[in-house]
């Protein structure tokens, strides 16, 4: 999947060579899209629209008498809502750390996998392992690893002589934050690597040969040949992983429940709690739309910064 120039600049001669059978191309295209549009439209469009509508209401199930339309008041109140603001800080930090680690680890891993070496097939298979792990199970797994009493990490570090006694890793704010980010990265890395690897696999080998002739060093070859080809897949990774990181819930919920204190209270966890525990549907929907709009704006940001040159296409 990728964002390519061709989406708007339709394939040359595409429609032209097609014999018409009474239907215009546009009609035919929408006919082909109809099944997908119907399913998405029927099942999601209404819930999405409804949630936006709710976000314009003061609507807590516990206070049905106070329900009313308040325009954008829920959104405006966020500016001075300490719970939301602290959660936003945590979320931004979480997204930045997760994205940073994902991009660095993912790129390095994809570059390694693109080389030829003994055992490459094995590593290519191993990289898919975390993908197969449901977020809930991922959270449980890291819990047992970082456990303060019986955890594998404590045992390992103690045996290596790096710590004197077992540590409660998840109890300090920084520790809990980094561990949840780490667990999230581990879980989502495979998809990143696949996309990047797919991108690397399309680089024509002549380009490397040409670079070799020019006696370009490893670094030069990376910046001159590899990186330009990776920009596109990296863009997709950034968009998808930003979406994922903003919505990360399962792993965090199982691992820390949002604590200690506010340390891992990312907006997705706060959002679920607001809707289902506090039954504040109005405010909860506003949180959701903030996530949506922020994700959208960031996606647009990525596309426009990475594709400054020339025409920008989606």
């Amino acid at each position: 999947m990728t964002l390519t120039a061709a989406d708007t600049e339709q394939p040359p001669a595409a429609a032209a060579s097609r014999p018409r059978r009474g239907l215009s191309d546009t009609a035919r295209a929408y006919l082909l899209n109809a099944p997908a549009m119907i399913v998405i439209g029927l099942l999601v469009a209404y819930p999405i629209g409804y949630s936006f509508w709710l976000s314009l209401h003061r609507y807590n199930l516990k206070l049905p008498a106070l329900e009313r339309f308040v325009w954008f008041q829920n959104y405006l109140s966020l500016v001075s809502d300490p719970v939301f603001l602290s959660s936003l800080r945590v979320t931004v930090a979480f997204v930045v750390v997760v994205l940073g680690m994902t991009v660095i680890l993912g790129t390095a891993l994809a570059l390694v996998l693109n080389e030829t070496f003994l055992g490459r097939g094995v590593l290519r298979s191993l990289v898919l392992l975390p993908w197969a792990m449901p977020g809930v199970v991922n959270g449980l797994m890291w819990r047992t690893i970082f456990d303060a009493k019986t955890g594998a990490l404590n045992g390992l570090l103690l045996q290596l002589g790096l710590i004197d006694s077992y540590q409660a890793w998840l109890t300090s704010p920084t520790g809990a934050f980094l561990i949840t980010a780490f667990a999230q990265v581990w879980n989502t890395l495979p998809f990143t690597v696949i996309i990047l690897l797919a991108g690397l696999s399309t680089i024509p080998s002549e380009q490397y040969d040409a670079a070799k002739v020019d006696r370009a060093g490893v670094v030069q070859r990376f910046t001159q040949v590899t990186l330009p080809w990776l920009l596109h897949p990296l863009l997709i990774v950034l968009i998808l992983e930003t979406m994922n990181a903003f919505r990360a819930f399962d792993t965090i919920y199982v691992l820390t429940g949002g604590g200690p204190g506010d340390a891992t209270n990312v907006i997705a966890v706060l959002n679920v709690r607001t809707v289902l525990t506090y039954t504040d549907f109005g405010l909860g929907s506003a949180y959701s739309w903030v996530i949506t709009i922020v994700t959208l704006v960031i996606s647009i940001g990525y596309i426009s910064t990475l594709y400054q040159r020339g025409r920008i296409e989606v």
Binding site: V44, I48, A268, N271, V272, V275, S288
Partner: peptide, 12 residues
């Protein structure tokens, strides 16, 4: 449609 968090649409 994928950018809207699941929690927003789960009740409807």
């Amino acid at each position: 449609t994928r950018m809207v968090p699941g929690i927003a649409i789960i009740i409807p």
